[in-house]
Design a protein around this nucleic acid. Sequence first.
DNA 1: CTGAAAGCGCTTACAG
DNA 2: CTGAAAGCGCTTACAG
Lengths: 329, 329
Amino acid sequence: MVTLKDVALLAGVSASTVSYVLNGKKRVRKETYDRIVKAAKELNYSPNRAAISLKTDQSNTIGVMVNNMQDLFFMEIIRAIENTAYEYKYNVIFCDAVNSEEREISNIRNLLSQRIDGLIFAGTGKTTSVHLKNIGIPVVTLDRSAGSGDVSINTDNVSGGELAAGFLVDRGKTPIAVITYSTLVGTFFDRVSGYRKALAARNLPCDDQLVVEAEFSTHDEGYRAAMKLLDKGVGFKSIFCVNDMLAVGAMRALVERGYRIPEDIAIVGYDDIPIAKLFVPSLTTIRQPQYDMGQKAVEYLCKMIRKEVLSEEEKTLIIEPELIIRETV
Amino acid sequence: MVTLKDVALLAGVSASTVSYVLNGKKRVRKETYDRIVKAAKELNYSPNRAAISLKTDQSNTIGVMVNNMQDLFFMEIIRAIENTAYEYKYNVIFCDAVNSEEREISNIRNLLSQRIDGLIFAGTGKTTSVHLKNIGIPVVTLDRSAGSGDVSINTDNVSGGELAAGFLVDRGKTPIAVITYSTLVGTFFDRVSGYRKALAARNLPCDDQLVVEAEFSTHDEGYRAAMKLLDKGVGFKSIFCVNDMLAVGAMRALVERGYRIPEDIAIVGYDDIPIAKLFVPSLTTIRQPQYDMGQKAVEYLCKMIRKEVLSEEEKTLIIEPELIIRETV
DNA sequence: CTGAAAGCGCTTACAG
DNA sequence: CTGAAAGCGCTTACAG
């Protein structure tokens, strides 16, 4: 590999001068400048990031921890982060927790060994926050409640749940069943709370029989959960799914069992993943602006890395969720 | 940050000994061993990968270049790569070319600066192969034809195209329209060739009016292309889409225009992305085993990095595509 | 069984 | 305007 020294040799100057020139940190004589740039180009010089990282103690890399890449919500977040990081000239290392805290912790350890400059966390969200404490680098938490002091980006999950359930009630789609992912995760706990709150506000009963918990936020699990709900033989006119992946799986299950959507059973999801509008019928859902959220996460993280201060509002950004009415209700 | 030296100091030995012990490269007295391990744990020592990388000239990182993260085909590949690399204890840096050669080249330059140990390439596939030449590291090409000497993993795209078109003909769904992504990319050129071949073999005419090219392989573009096809007013009974993202977009367009699938217009896609089976009607398609392909790519790349030799079959792996019959035909 | 020392490729304070 | 030198945190051949 071509090194600074090689370039220096060819240009007839010292390595320090080459470094100064290539980094634009000092002015040199025009003639010297040209010689150096020409030499670098001729040799196709590419600086060794490991050396820079070692010397400057900055890796120019951010880590991203996501709970489950199969979930298109995270996929869209990943895409946003990748794009935004490119603009900010940061590299990013993605890790998939695959719903396992053990794997998540092992990944965090590795990321730290890489000396990432900061972390965007949207992982399992169960007890991992402990491991995020005193990590020594900036952390932005996404779609997960943060440990105290951490910066976080979320929609208001309680009011999102209310919005969904309220809408269903208003359309006469009661009783409402719920398919949720683990309520050990605050995000989903809050959405279900919102649902209960909406029912309570309307003096409607809340039947726990109607709430089923999926193991994982995939369409397979949504499918399975819907089948379970159907098999229970309890009557319901709609299902609120705490995320769209579960919803699209549930839709498929309903269709296979011969139910018409929304006539027999209506569905509301949460997230508004990119394919939600493609389905037939297209999915009514509570929108989380995924691309924006991913973009903001990178933006905030970079600010933190540069030791800029965030406003109080930025520190715990809460986005108002939006009901997107489509064809499943 | 805690360094080797800190651990050595606490354990009362030299830095070299700590390094030997932690890497398991030399046997030391049991007592010394225990002291070192205990000290490392106590200080929560995490080796600085940049230093290791600089010293050993190995980054333990592989790069992945993908044409378009919005395409669920690539997303599934990414997921497979992330998972497999985790097993192999490699880090991975993903780059999205976003359909732009310029961005792709800039990304490759950056990856090289990171001193990645190898590259999995599934990028734009237009002229970039030139930039992949003499890159100095192992490259595995995925779903793209490789430059000579490179290792590649593909399905047989010509026979995949034949399979799709042949099936449609056999079901009496002629004339067959085609929505393709740029045929400058060999992958798609081959699929369309297969389609033509299938028609020719059956003495059927091939109307170029029926072939439209999308700008990008997204559902939006598939939607647009289908609308264009419909607006042309030429009659056709089915559409072969060269990938599933285009297909699901096209389906939505047909539904909005009031066509029934498959009664009025049948559809065959290509890839079998994870959501293909979820749609209503579920998508008939030519399967590329994405997860396997991603897994194999990592496996082969690791072999190459370790300088193991690949068999001739592995060097240019061609997977037989499989027709998955579902509900859109 | 253990350690001293060189060196990987950079950056940067300091000197001239 | 330019360069010599130290040092980032590791690994590893060599010596004892």
